[in-house]
């Protein structure tokens, strides 16, 4: 009986802790908003983060985007061939990339690359007392460390997503037209006809949300690191897992709200 009670107890505590953590992340987000509204913004720091989050992620994003588009074209081709509708492959790839895969895959790649780095960096700063040093020098760490990262995430994710969308469609084209022999005119015309501006823009709005999530979660985990080098490692792992889960869950709700 005691064992059962203990299990229930632990389960309840785990849920409460999760809810509490969500609340703390939200508070961190609000404090970021608050500090964003207070000039001066550290432009140099923002640019540095934008370079790190954006420019340095181009390669992975181009790679994932291109190959995703290629795979979609290949898979779609086998499906559509059964209905003699091969020319729909182009619009399927384009819709899939702009609405879902572009934003989500980009966000996941950037989470793995930059979100983890944010957690590790801030975690190291926490355990080596650099964050305390900021407080002591009357400089708010949220303003100096987190705001630039969040701004970089929110701006660079849509930019990367555009690249990913474009490369995905391009990849789909190269598999579809020269390799599988779909008529190029039909391929492109179907994209023009079936893809809306709204599909692209909503995908970009999603991407901005994902950028917000991965940077806030990464910063939160790093900022609240305890326990030395091991703690930094733990924070990094947790940041990636939590950010990835949050991105996928919020994707559902964003889709439900937007489309």
């Amino acid at each position: 009986m005691n064992k059962i009670a203990a299990t229930v107890d632990n389960f309840g505590r785990a849920i409460l802790e999760n809810i509490e953590e969500m609340g703390r992340i939200l508070i961190l987000f609000l404090s970021v908003l608050a500090w964003m509204a207070r000039p001066p913004l550290k432009l140099r720091l923002i640019f540095k983060q934008m370079e790190f989050v954006g420019v340095k992620s181009i390669f992975v994003v181009v790679l994932t985007g291109t190959f995703t588009g290629m795979v979609m074209a290949l898979q779609g081709y086998y499906g559509f061939r059964m209905f003699n509708a091969e020319s729909l492959v182009g619009s399927t790839v384009a819709l899939g990339m702009t609405r879902e895969l572009g934003p989500v895959l980009t966000a996941l790649m950037v989470t793995a690359r930059a979100g983890s780095a944010m957690a590790a960096e801030l975690g190291t700063m926490r355990v080596t007392e650099q964050i305390d040093a900021l407080y002591v020098m009357a400089a708010n760490p949220v303003k100096h460390l987190i705001v630039p990262r969040v701004i970089a995430g929110v701006i660079m994710l849509p930019a990367l997503t555009i690249v990913s969308d474009f490369m995905g469609i391009l990849g789909g084209y190269f598999v579809g037209v020269p390799v599988l022999g779909i008529n190029s005119g039909a391929f492109i015309n179907n994209i023009n006809k079936l893809v809306d501006l709204g599909d692209i823009y909503n995908g970009l709005i999603k991407a901005a949300f994902f950028g917000l999530i991965l940077s806030v979660v990464g910063c939160y985990k790093g900022f609240n690191t305890t326990g030395g080098a091991e703690g930094v490692g733990k924070a990094t792992t947790e940041a990636v897992v939590l950010a990835a889960i949050s991105i996928l869950i919020s994707d559902y709700f964003l889709t439900a709200i937007m489309f």
């Binding site: 700063m125 080596t128 007392e129 650099q130 305390d132 040093a133 002591v136 020098m137 009357a138 708010n140």
Partner: peptide, 23 residues
């Protein structure tokens, strides 16, 4: 509150154990 605390902190300097220099 934080605002007041920051004013007070300007009177302080602190040397941390591992110096806590910004990497």
């Amino acid at each position: 509150n934080d605002k007041g605390l920051n004013e007070v902190r300007k009177k302080f300097g602190m040397l941390f154990q591992e110096a806590a220099l910004f990497d």
